[in-house]
Every structure is written in structure tokens, then in C-alpha cells.
Simulated assay, not measured.
Amino acid sequence: MHRIAVRVAALGVAILALVASPAQAQDAQEEAKIKKWLEGYVAALNAKDLKALGSFYDEQATIYEGGSIDNGWASYRDHHLGPELKEFQNLQFALVDVTPHVPEKGAKVAWVTATYTLKAKMKDRDIDSAGLETMVLVKDKDGSWKIRHSHTSSRRRPAPQAPTQAKP
């Protein structure tokens, strides 16, 4: 009976050790590379460089943005992003709170969560928005990351409050 109790306790400790520690550590080095890669993405977007932006997207990418779906980089470029970028003046786009997730060394799929800000002028309208973005990345044959899916949600930033006058 004592041997069974010892075996059960040992099995319990082993299971606890497996549950308490991840099977494989995330790849911090690859996550740092993705952050650097995203800096290039932001620079290309702010430069409104569609050719450079194309190098960041998988040809079959799906983009969920503004309540619509674009299937494929060419569709997104030609019918959504391209026309938008032409109209934007003084574009200022930034990704903040960027968190890449590479589940294990050698992973071919990763994801990024981030907050973004976007300021621009479009005709007579000032745009000042912020939102959330999730990107699913896949590794291409040459080992570079590509955006396979992107989903953003946005909200307008609240207008600045005018200072209130103190009553005498």
C-alpha cells in the first residue's frame, strides 16, 4: 500500500511539473526580429510606399478592417489601402504596445498583438484614431515573415476637453 501511495505522489508531482512549465519556451530572439521587422512596416506605411508594403504581406492575406474584408494583398492594395493612402495627407501611423508571440523555436507561424494610432488629414477631415490590431504571420520559403491575416478595430479618440473656468 505504501508503494502505491509513493507512486501516486510521484506521478502527481510529474504531472504538476508538466502543467506548470511550458512545453517549449517562446522564441525571444525571433520575437525581437519581428519587432524590428514591424518598424520597417510602419516606415513603409508612413511613406505610403505600396511596393515596400507588398513585401510585408502574403499574397493570400485576409484583412479585416473597418467592417470589411479584403481577400488577398492585390485586392487590399488596389481597392482599400492604395486609395486610402493617396488621400491621406500628413500620415502619422504608429504601433505601440507591440507583443509578438512565437510559440517555439523554428515556428513557421506567429502572431502579434498591438495598439495603433493613426493621424492624418483626408480632404477636409482630420483623422485621429486609435485601435487594436492582431496580425497572424507566416514564414515564407526564404525565412521572412509575411502578414497572412490582419484584424483591426478602431475608435475615435475623445476630443480634448476645454479647460473649465474657475468660478470666483
Rank of each mutant, 00 (worst) to 15 (best):
H2D: 15
H2E: 15
R3P: 04
I4C: 13
A5D: 10
V6R: 10
A10Y: 10
G12E: 01
V13E: 07
I15M: 09
I15R: 04
I15F: 08
A17I: 08
V19Y: 14
A20I: 14
P22E: 06
Q26R: 15
E31P: 01
A32V: 00
I34N: 00
K35V: 05
K35G: 03
K36H: 12
E39C: 09
E39M: 10
G40C: 10
Y41S: 02
Y41A: 01
V42G: 02
A44T: 05
K48V: 00
D49K: 13
L50D: 03
S55K: 04
D58K: 04
E59V: 06
E59S: 15
A61F: 02
T62N: 12
I63Q: 00
Y64L: 15
G66C: 07
I69M: 12
I69A: 09
D70A: 08
N71W: 10
G72Y: 04
A74L: 11
A74F: 06
S75C: 07
S75T: 12
H80V: 06
P83C: 06
E84N: 14
L85M: 05
L85W: 04
F88L: 08
F88I: 04
N90E: 09
Q92C: 10
F93A: 11
A94T: 09
A94R: 08
V96M: 13
D97V: 08
D97S: 15
V98W: 01
H101W: 04
K105Y: 05
A107M: 06
K108Q: 11
K108T: 11
V109Y: 04
A114C: 06
Y116R: 06
T117E: 08
T117P: 05
T117V: 10
L118A: 04
A120P: 03
K123S: 15
D128I: 08
S129V: 13
S129Y: 09
A130R: 08
A130F: 06
L132D: 05
L132Y: 07
E133D: 13
E133H: 07
T134V: 14
L137G: 02
K139C: 06
D140F: 07
K141D: 13
K141E: 12
D142T: 13
G143D: 05
W145A: 01
K146T: 04
K146L: 04
R148I: 10
R148Q: 14
R148C: 03
H149Q: 12
H151V: 05
T152V: 05
P158K: 11
P158S: 15
Q165N: 11
K167G: 03
K167N: 09
K167L: 05
P168F: 02
